[in-house]
Design a protein around this nucleic acid. Structure first.
Lengths: 137, 137
DNA sequence: TCCCAAGCTAACGTATACGTCAAGTGTCTC
DNA sequence: GAGACACTTGACGTATACGTTAGCTTGGGA
């Protein structure tokens, strides 16, 4: 590409699987498993996996999606939305619009469930605290 | 007990397993499974399960907890919090206070994750809509 | 009385998300 | 060159949450 930086490209930070695993607090097995599922596709250097900053961010996305209860198979579709942002064919845009709308709705429903549970938990929590303080006070 | 209502007790609504399953949109198998796990304990009438209104509400709680990604084994602990509300031994109160506090924190963390994901999804969604309208406009 | 629909238990099957060996390769270091 | 690691690819094991099938029991209507 004739970069103005020597070595032909911007010095991008690269990671081995151990580093990536440590950085994200997951096992190497987990990362390989995600690769099997097509969620991340690291480059290979003589058989060994080499991850870029982009891969790392992808992994963050995956883990966050997981933490809110999304299945890995859904996360795959989900990641495509991020990837396709730049494209512009009408079909693609409509696909993205529909999928994101559905996902947004689902997440907001989930938030409502969480809010209801939170309010109930807080009632129990506060009630217990009050009874405890009376018992002691 | 000596109630003032004939038949010795308030006429409580009772359900069979089929009714309960239909009402909550789950399978009978699911309900029996929850029973195996100790989440609900219906009365028996000649071997058959009979559910009260209380059991039904319990099931609602279970399903809501599940929908926000709580494991069944955790839901069990969770349900005890609702049940113990009335009790008052200091140990019990402290237990409830600690558990609810932890659960509240966890749920709020989850909400933050959802909010972040939502904002990203909305960016993608709005961006795609804008590009689509330009393409058509 | 006979039979069916509904319920019951028991047990095996399935999908998801990894954990955990096992066995081989590659590289660095002493 | 011999360990000692770090990495690789299978491949089997495990926990969770049910689905499904099989076979027995039972109450109620034709």
């Amino acid at each position: 590409m004739g970069s103005n930086i020597r070595d032909g490209a911007a010095a991008e930070t690269l990671y081995g699987i151990a580093e990536l695993a440590d950085a994200h607090g997951v096992s190497q097995r987990t990362i390989r498993f995600y690769e099997d599922k097509g969620l991340i596709s690291p480059r290979r250097v003589g058989g060994q996996r080499v991850y870029t900053e982009h891969d790392s961010k992808r992994l963050s996305l995956i883990l966050r999606a997981k933490s809110i209860g999304t299945k890995l198979s859904d996360i795959r579709t989900f990641l495509e939305l991020y990837g396709r942002e730049g494209e512009g064919r009408v079909r693609q845009l409509e696909f993205v619009i529909d999928k994101t709308a559905a996902e947004i709705e689902a997440l907001e429903a989930k938030k409502r469930q969480i809010d209801q549970t939170l309010s109930e938990l807080k009632l129990i929590h506060d009630g217990a605290r009050e009874r405890l303080s009376r018992r002691r006070g």
